[in-house]
Design a protein around this nucleic acid. Structure first.
Lengths: 106, 106
DNA sequence: GTGTTTAGTATACAGAGTATAGTTTCGTGA
DNA sequence: TCACGAAACTATACTCTGTATACTAAACAC
């Protein structure tokens, strides 16, 4: 039973990865989501979701040494598959939100 | 391990219920989602999610006889808890989407 | 009262979300 | 030079959500 699209957390992970661009590694991704959503995100949750997404081929990663020393980091990039899924999720969600009186603002 | 917020499908179900207003019963909710998202939704998926949401107290339901005859239907209404969860999900998602170059359009 | 349609239920299982705990790698300073 | 701490990442376990298949119930038409 393959799933239809993205889970809600997967979506946040992909968006955070895109946002961070060249600096998207595990801990930073978790912090980006925390910062923008006021929701606490454990590192483990982020890492586990990242590796599941990588297994599916929606993102890819490479290890690069930290520039300022420190332990090497695994940096992530969202691939074409991931971008496609994101667009689908966006269309579904925005289509349902539109015109609900919830659509914007607080 | 209670969950943080709404799953993606739960969100669609709540939004469809709000959209349909006075005419929100199981089959119609499934069809509303199909119509607005180009995604196929089985009735069973909709009913199961509706009853789970009701168990949590985020929506409520009453049975009313169909006006045009036919089998009686169970109509759903989103309660305060549900509305609150929806707002939270909206804020999280829109906050992450904003400014990603994915934000709008096709 | 059989057949058809619409509405809803039961069950089972895979997949996504979360928590707790642990390991590895590097820098620092005694 | 090695103990310590911090940052980055891993392992595992478990629950909640998502999905599919199959089934039951009520009303209508004939």
């Amino acid at each position: 039973m393959p799933r239809h699209g993205l889970g809600d957390f997967e979506q946040l992970i992909l968006l955070a990865t895109i946002r961070l661009g060249d600096d998207a590694y595990g801990t930073a991704i978790a912090e980006e989501i925390e910062a923008r959503t006021n929701r606490s995100v454990s590192q483990a949750a982020a890492y586990l979701t990242l590796s599941r997404l990588e297994e599916k081929g929606w993102i890819s990663s490479t290890v690069r040494s930290g520039r300022d020393g420190g332990r090497a980091r695994r940096y992530y990039t969202v691939g074409d598959e991931g971008l496609t899924r994101l667009r689908e999720s966006r269309d579904e969600l925005f289509g349902m939100w539109e015109g609900t009186s919830f659509e914007r603002s607080a």
